[in-house]
């Protein structure tokens, strides 16, 4: 059964026009990424229990939930940092294994981790290309990398003064845009951002959200993890709620009410979500 049917049922107030539109854009395609019945436990802690999650191209999916809901754990499974105990991961319909961060990169998954994975002692270019440096005649192709870095930063209309600036000299917002720009190296299909706006000022947050829209406009599937509802509603197309490591609702961002999402996050409502088989 298509996902939208679930949505309509859970939200209860389907916006006819919107629903039709999403129908035609998503149901006709296989998802870029489909995670099915993912389980992950850390000793006694059940971080993820039978979680289903899908990402389509040209879409920003927000993953929301309270602290400890399992959002970062899911992001780490997608990016190959953690291995699920059970469950299936499919990319464009094919079952895949993501045993390491570089395997994820090879599959076209790029991630901005919650604790920024950047090196303060390297410059912007070196950070963008870390782990996937361009070389020519056994040496680093610095000029080539700098040109590519400038182009990517321009595409993101980012305000980095120079691609040779050391990361330690950048503001928090600028560092975040470097982290986001990093995801564009090697033309990924899916970008996962874990709490990209935490610790940013209002202006910097607006900039990051613009970047995220830019990623979608480039045709990527974007997973935005956040517990700031304003950010989520500003840029996302779909909102998936996790609670205690389980799916607890799926919402259309443009039509769902703030209260309904909040209720799903806090557990005031159990959407009857699990009773509907999501995948035919």
């Amino acid at each position: 059964m298509p996902v939208e049917a679930v949505r309509d049922e859970t939200i209860g107030v389907p916006d006819g026009e919107q629903a039709r539109q999403t129908m035609t854009t998503t149901t006709t395609r296989t998802p870029l990424l489909a995670m099915r019945q993912i389980c992950k436990r850390f000793n006694a802690v059940e971080a993820l229990v039978d979680v289903d999650f899908e990402v389509y191209a040209h879409e920003v999916v927000a993953l929301v939930g309270d602290n400890g809901a399992g959002k970062s754990t899911l992001a780490k499974v997608i990016s190959g940092v953690l291995q699920p105990d059970s469950g299936l991961i499919e990319m464009e319909g094919e079952t895949v294994a993501i045993p390491s961060p570089s395997a994820a990169h090879d599959l076209g998954v790029a991630t901005v981790f919650q604790d920024l994975a950047l090196c303060d002692n390297l410059d912007v270019t070196a950070n963008l290309f870390l782990g996937r440096e361009m070389t020519g005649r056994a040496l680093l192709a610095d000029a080539q990398m700098e040109d590519a870095a400038k182009k990517i930063l321009r595409d993101l209309s980012s305000r980095i003064p120079s691609v040779r600036t050391q990361l330690r000299d950048l503001s928090a917002g600028q560092r975040q845009s470097v982290a986001i720009a990093r995801t564009l190296i090697g033309s990924p299909r899916i970008v996962v951002l874990d709490e990209p706006t935490a610790s940013l000022s209002v202006a910097q947050t607006a900039e990051v959200l613009t970047h995220i829209q830019g990623l979608r406009d480039l045709g990527l599937g974007v997973v935005l993890i956040s517990h700031n509802m304003n950010d989520v509603r500003a840029v996302s197309d779909r909102i998936e709620v996790l609670r205690h490591g389980r799916n607890n609702g799926s919402f259309d961002a443009s039509s769902a009410s703030y209260e309904a999402i909040l209720a799903a996050i806090t557990g005031a409502t159990h959407q009857g979500y699990r009773s509907v088989p999501r995948f035919a």
Binding site: A117, C119, D120, N121
Partner: peptide, 24 residues
């Protein structure tokens, strides 16, 4: 200063987990 190995040496010293997550 000019090889991937050297770049990775600096990355490991600068932020070990970042280097790891970046595929170094």
């Amino acid at each position: 200063t000019k090889t991937v190995f050297g770049r990775h040496v600096y990355a490991i010293g600068g932020n070990l987990s970042a280097a790891q997550l970046s595929g170094v």
